[in-house]
Amino acid sequence: MSPAAHPVLDLPFDVTPDPDEFVRAAMEWHFSPETGSPYWLRRAQSLDFDPRRDIKTHADLTLFPNVVDELRDVPVRDLVPRGYGEAPDIVGTFESGGTTGAPKRVVCLRDWMDRVVAWSNANLDTHGFPRGVQWLGVTPSGPHVVGRIFEESAATHGSLGFFVDLDPRWVKKLIATGRGDLADDYAEHVIDQAAFVLRTQDIGVMTITPPLLERLARRDELVDLVNEKVRAIRWGGTQMDADSRDLYRTEIFPGIPLYGHYGSTMILGIAGQRYGLGEDDPCVFDTFSPYITFSVVDPASGEPVAYGERGRVVMNHVSKGLLLPNNLERDLATRIEAPDGRVGDSVADIAPVARFDNETVIEGVY
């Protein structure tokens, strides 16, 4: 029989644990020889602190080094906590976008996928997304976790999903090597695939990236089909500026709820657009705290910037299935105060840095 976890690690998705009690329980789970993963049990030997003794609050997660670059080479089985037993229910292994070199890999357990999708589905309800309809996803699949989240959402919040695959790595490679015309051709090919579905199927929810939504909106026939059939649009992958959001909401797709999310493979999830934002407000993203948390810091000092100021995004993932704290992401954002009861920061005005890990950052279509 597998060792039991502290009950605070297994609460329902809509019950928010005390963040400090939760972090302490997670440290016991991830660094106990009986339940921790081979990776973290080895890595603990090189830390200059004892996580089970010294990590007492959510704020103490800053003691951890940023280990994400090590995940380019770590066998993913070594990331699975031993507490899941000999036959853990693994949903899949997922990779970062490869924007800054060889991709990093994480493994996702079934209990986490169910938790984050249930949280996301509740957000969709808040934003007026209809349940039980058919979904169309124009998103990366394969090694990218967003494709699996789409699939799970389409099956649980919706009824079924239609998929149009997207290879963002190929688009970025084309752009980086000066073949932007081929990247344009590929993007138009993707929209062609979406058009076939929109013409022939009843689609109630569409998930798409902002650059591809812009391309779709250039075709009058597809704008008409979306307005006729689609009842809500979920976007993510790259940022959407306030002017574009306003144009979609008021002129191109009037009356259709437009909901954004912001995430990363390294947190195995997403942050959701805050409900009730005014027309002139920036798009603010709130996290699934305390499992997924952000901080916005000065990259030179590592200290938080003031609310309303811009800095680099640091992401933490702490759950029963995965521990990945203190990851300095490639994105800049404005620091926003989180809603009451949540730890960490909310973020707005997401934009990539120009260079990251000595590589030029190219967004492309995702």
Rank of each mutant, 00 (worst) to 15 (best):
D192C: 02
G178L: 09
V190T: 10
A176Q: 10
I208C: 10
T177N: 12
V197Y: 05
G161C: 11
F150N: 11
A187Y: 00
T207V: 13
T200A: 03
D184Q: 14
R218Y: 02
Q201R: 15
F163E: 03
A187M: 09
T156C: 06
E188K: 07
G204S: 04
Y186G: 02
T209C: 03
E188P: 00
R179A: 12
V164E: 05
H189I: 03
I191P: 00
R148V: 07
D185M: 09
P210R: 11
R199T: 03
D185A: 15
W170S: 10
R169K: 13
A217Y: 05
L212M: 11
L160H: 14
R179N: 15
R219M: 04
R215W: 02
A187S: 15
G147I: 07
Q193M: 11
I149D: 06
V197L: 05
K172Y: 02
T156Q: 10
V171H: 13
E214A: 15
D192R: 13
D184I: 10
G178K: 03
L212R: 05
F163Q: 07
G161Y: 05
V205F: 08
E214H: 11
F150A: 12
D167W: 10
V205C: 14
L212K: 08
L198W: 04
R169A: 13
F163A: 05
E152I: 10
W170E: 14
A194Q: 06
A195P: 01
Q201W: 01
L166R: 08
A176N: 09
R219F: 00
S153R: 14
R179Q: 15
T209E: 05
D165Q: 06
V146M: 13
E152M: 12
A194V: 08
F150S: 06
R148Q: 14
I203N: 02
G204H: 01
L212N: 09
T177G: 07
L166V: 10
I149L: 15
L166P: 00
G178Y: 06
T200M: 00
D192I: 00
H189G: 04
F150P: 01
D184F: 06
F162T: 03
R179W: 05
I149C: 08
T207F: 09
D202E: 15
V171I: 15
G180C: 04
F163L: 05
R218C: 04
R215T: 12
E151F: 05
R148A: 14
Y186M: 06
A176T: 10
H189E: 13
D192V: 01
K173W: 14
I191R: 01
E188H: 07
A183W: 08
W170H: 14
Y186S: 06
L213W: 06
I208V: 15
A194K: 07
Y186H: 09
A183S: 13
V171T: 14
Y186A: 03
A217H: 08
D202I: 14
A154I: 07
R219G: 03
V171Y: 05
R215C: 05
G147M: 10
L216H: 03
I203F: 02
I175L: 15
I149Q: 08
I203D: 02
V171E: 12
D192A: 14
V197F: 02
V197D: 03
T177V: 05
G158Q: 09
A155P: 09
V171P: 00
V164H: 01
A195W: 00
V205M: 05
T200L: 02
F163H: 06
G178V: 11
F150M: 12
H157P: 11
